[in-house]
């Protein structure tokens, strides 16, 4: 009994040493699961699931078209377009959309899951997110109607602007006095 107590005490001391103040609670798997939304370009963080553009069309019509319009063309001054602008980035009026600007399909999936539909975010199941993402990418001519997107195939979708980003190269402006 006494040695048990001693053992417990020394365990406490060790914990206190490695955790300088000892504040906070150990996070449980449930704590993480509750907030686990991050998806990385290599697919890490994607839940298993699947969907096609054909399946996504109905979801889009019901849950997205009201704002983003029938074919993802958006509503000028009201809601952003989800299609168009490919090849416009060096023009005087670049149109940045999922199709023309976003470098990773995983980002589209991640954003739709966490933030859309705007008024009911995180109400879609994983399969629905795969399907509606496939539909948005299909509207941009980037996946076929029956092509299945899942945790393996989604990261492999090559976005047109995949190589469009460079690291911060500032200070890039040398001003003269």
């Amino acid at each position: 009994m006494r040695s048990m107590l001693l053992l417990l005490c020394s365990a406490g001391v060790i914990a206190a040493q490695s955790q300088p103040y000892g504040f906070g609670q150990p996070a449980t798997a449930a704590d993480t699961a509750q907030k686990d939304l991050t998806v990385f370009p290599n697919g890490k963080g994607l839940p298993s699931g699947k969907g096609t553009a054909d399946q996504g069309a109905a979801i889009y019509k019901e849950k997205c078209a009201e704002c983003h319009n029938e074919k993802g063309e958006g509503r000028p001054g009201q809601y952003p377009a989800l299609v168009g602008g490919i090849g416009s980035l060096t023009s005087a009026k670049p149109l940045k959309t999922v199709g023309s600007f976003w470098p990773y399909a995983t980002t589209v999936w991640d954003y739709i899951r966490r933030a859309m539909p705007f008024d009911h975010p995180r109400s879609l199941s994983a399969d629905e997110v795969y399907a509606v993402t496939a539909f948005v990418l299909h509207l941009n001519g980037l996946v076929e109607r029956t092509q299945e997107l899942n945790e393996k195939t989604l990261p492999a979708v090559k976005m047109p602007n995949r190589d469009g980003f460079v690291p911060d190269r500032r200070p890039d402006i040398k001003s003269k006095r």
Partner: peptide, 26 residues
Amino acid sequence: QPAMSAKETANYTDLMPDGKAQQFTF
């Protein structure tokens, strides 16, 4: 690794005349 979230790719990146965008311009 960075997540490449929407707000660090689609937004808050600096599109340059050559069509490339500077990223993580914090």
